[in-house]
Design a protein around this nucleic acid. Sequence first.
DNA 1: GTAAACTTTCATAAAACTGTCATACTTAGT
DNA 2: ACTAAGTATGACAGTTTTATGAAAGTTTAC
Lengths: 229, 229
Amino acid sequence: MSRRVLVVDDEAPIREMLVFVLEQNGFQAIEAEDYDSAIAAMVEPYPDMVLLDWMLPGGSGIQIAKKFKQSEYTRQIPIIMLTARGEEEDKVKGLEVGADDYVTKPFSPKELMARIKAVMRRVSPTSLEEAIEVHGLRLDPISHRVTSAGNELDMGPTEFRLLHFFMTHPERVYSREQLLDHVWGTNVYVEDRTVDVHIRRLRKAIAPLGHDRLVQTVRGAGYRFSSKV
Amino acid sequence: MSRRVLVVDDEAPIREMLVFVLEQNGFQAIEAEDYDSAIAAMVEPYPDMVLLDWMLPGGSGIQIAKKFKQSEYTRQIPIIMLTARGEEEDKVKGLEVGADDYVTKPFSPKELMARIKAVMRRVSPTSLEEAIEVHGLRLDPISHRVTSAGNELDMGPTEFRLLHFFMTHPERVYSREQLLDHVWGTNVYVEDRTVDVHIRRLRKAIAPLGHDRLVQTVRGAGYRFSSKV
DNA sequence: GTAAACTTTCATAAAACTGTCATACTTAGT
DNA sequence: ACTAAGTATGACAGTTTTATGAAAGTTTAC
């Protein structure tokens, strides 16, 4: 599973923002606001990663990093430090102490998650992205496979991404435009109606076991993935 | 449906963070990074709200706010300004220019969304996309579904909008003309009596569990959605 | 460099939805 | 009761929206 992230920052708003982004991306967040609470999180179950503000009052950020790197059990837990823009010295010092990467404030969610995933991939290559299963339809991002009752279902890359998006955002209507944004990517010029065709292919691909009914048309609004039939 | 938010900030990371939080909360975000692109967004379909960084280079944040408050069509669009911590002067000036509220950077997603929802509620009390339930009849705008005791009720787009309008404006009579304005949209040429037909269709759709009695005829005046029977 | 696999667009068929009408019903007042 | 005005309802013909097969253009993998 390996998806627990310890967030250490003394500023509540920033901490909450980090937690929000992490949770929206399927991570579990543990919060700490100072040295003591961070150290208190150095117990089982150990976090799988630490997001650490370098600017903690009293310079305790660096102390926390050292502490993590000293202990036998927490040494290999990756640490990403959060630094203010331009504090080059801190970055150097941080990497010396054992931080694995750093993110500059302010950060975009995309950048943050990219760093986190990159670091996690480096440390434990297979821990990211767990399989999702709905009504016997199983999508495994790691093996990049969709199965149903043991049978592998064959589909193209776009259909896979579409299904992945749907399964991670169920019970919600998406317009064709929104789907293009989320699955195809922003500023991609593609006809709205193209979505129809891929929906069609996705349905066809998962139809053998009747899962096509999970992909529902909402006339005038778009499409929805729902286990409620 | 009132969920489009214009985000104006010159710093890409912050802008992306705002967009991320908004989209995760079901809003549609439009991005602008400077004065020109913000003004370019002052067209149909108008945004329903503006999140505006006060610290735009060249002080253009305040110019944008003024521009919005000057135009007939955008005057009533609420503006929430983003300010750095402690810039009390800016807050005062902002509120003078017509901003509706402000959020201090750094902000937590919870606070941000609370402000946005509060302002939206103040401006258009019914535009928030939360599920509404009356007497066991439940309408969920997110999944675009109407259910009653677990059963999904099937209806056309117009009936859905009509019901949505009714449920967000209960206990109040609306003439056929008013309903046309609110549900069909302004400057739409449609016979008054058409409303009757859609009322009929709506009633038929929600009748299975007896909810049709919630849609009441007020002879000589129009129709009313009321839980009082 | 070529074959295979994918994507996108297009054309057409199939569904679902709309606005109007004509007719049947109700209600309120005489 | 009878009438006039207002409402309910079923039907239908035209539109709009979706579904689908196939063609044309791209990318990917040997």
